[in-house]
Design a binder for these strands. Structure first.
Length: 336
DNA sequence: ACTGCGTCCTGGGGGC
DNA sequence: TGCCCCCAGGACGCAG
């Protein structure tokens, strides 16, 4: 399932292939793939044709292409993508070709194409306005002006050891310019403004403990911090030795810090590996798969020994999905 | 205001 | 062999 590392892999692949190219034709094969678009497929197609892709940006699991107008006008709109469960963005060098789950075909002036392929159609594409925000929205970081170093439009912000990770165009007011559906999405853990030791990270730690809910539910809350899905939530909890049902209002700040560090690290490592692929449902823009699934400690490993202590990994239903954990390393809280 | 649950979707796999 | 049910889960909308 595409979570932050998988979407960043796709973003980087897209940026390398489509930046500077102009859209000449758009075909929507399945209306559900543009269900968020005001005006439907017709509006979607007409808003894209003639526009040039100037940058590819990501926050959490959302990825968007900045578009400039036919007359070279400013970047007023973005083509926003969410991959959902099974979405893929594939780049093709030559026109034509088919795929059983091809939902949208975007043709470019040099005969290249971008395909939105999605078996389960939980994902979608939509064209929407770019909204200047002061702090990235309700779940975002409200802090001091990051300074001129952060203000270069769509500049890649190098994060070692992974590839460059842009986090939206920073405005002079310490906010970001975001597609309308992303305004309420919190900054992700690879965002420099949430780096360990920063005021942003401290604020996230505090907001996480403000609520009274199960810890995993908070990790999955995309308004708090975005990009974490079921796989990396379980992996981060295992690394931090925390049970998913620990209640957020009873956690000490230092414990939450360790968990956020663990989540950051596991996603960075996955990014270096090109993401996690269980099957052909998640791939890079060229169709190649990542290999981080081999490094997973607990996710999908029910019945196998914990890599740390040897106890048998358990799978439980939680929030209508699966939670994997080590019953010895991650003790269930006495009080729920 | 805040928390939690139902819903959308499709193909693969297991059981009988 | 065929059929049916379960499973995967991100984000949103709504109920309480």
């Amino acid at each position: 399932m595409p979570e932050l590392p998988e979407v960043e892999t796709v973003r980087a692949g897209l940026a390398a292939h489509v930046r500077g190219r102009t859209i000449t034709a758009v075909t929507v094969y399945r209306d559900r793939a543009v269900r968020r678009q005001a005006g439907g497929a017709t509006q979607f197609e007409s808003m894209l044709i003639g526009r040039t892709i100037t940058a590819v940006v990501r926050r959490g699991k959302f990825c968007w292409l900045l578009l400039s107008g036919p007359d070279g006008a400013g970047e007023d709109y973005a083509l926003l993508a969410h991959l959902g469960m099974s979405g893929q963005l594939l780049v093709r060098a030559a026109p034509g070709g088919e795929h059983p789950h091809l939902r949208i075909r975007i043709s470019m002036h040099d005969d290249g194409e971008v395909w939105f392929v999605d078996q389960r159609t939980f994902g979608y594409l939509t064209v929407d306005d770019l909204i200047p925000t002061r702090d990235g929205g309700p779940g975002g970081f409200a802090g001091p002006d990051p300074g001129p170093g952060q203000s270069a439009p769509s500049a890649a912000v190098p994060i070692t050891p992974g590839p460059g990770v842009p986090h939206g165009r920073q405005t002079a007011a310490a906010g970001s310019v975001l597609p309308r559906p992303v305004v309420h999405i919190g900054r992700d853990l690879l965002d420099p403004l949430l780096a360990p030791g920063t005021p942003g990270r401290a604020g996230l730690n505090r907001r996480l403990r403000l609520g009274r809910r199960d810890l995993k539910r908070a990790l999955l809350d995309q308004e708090l911090t975005s990009g974490i899905g079921n796989i990396y939530a379980d992996e981060a909890l295992w690394r931090a030795r925390l049970h998913y049902q620990r209640r957020t209002d009873r956690l000490r700040p230092a414990v939450v810090d360790e968990l956020l560090d663990a989540a950051t690290e596991v996603m960075r490592e996955a990014l270096v590996a090109g993401g996690t692929s269980f099957d052909a449902l998640y791939v890079n823009v060229d169709g190649t798969a990542g290999y981080f699934d081999r490094a997973l400690a607990v996710y999908g490993r029910a019945g196998q020994p914990c890599p740390r202590c040897g106890a048998i990994i358990v799978r439980e239903a939680f929030m209508n999905r699966s939670s994997y954990f080590c019953p010895r390393c991650q003790r269930r809280p006495r009080r729920l």
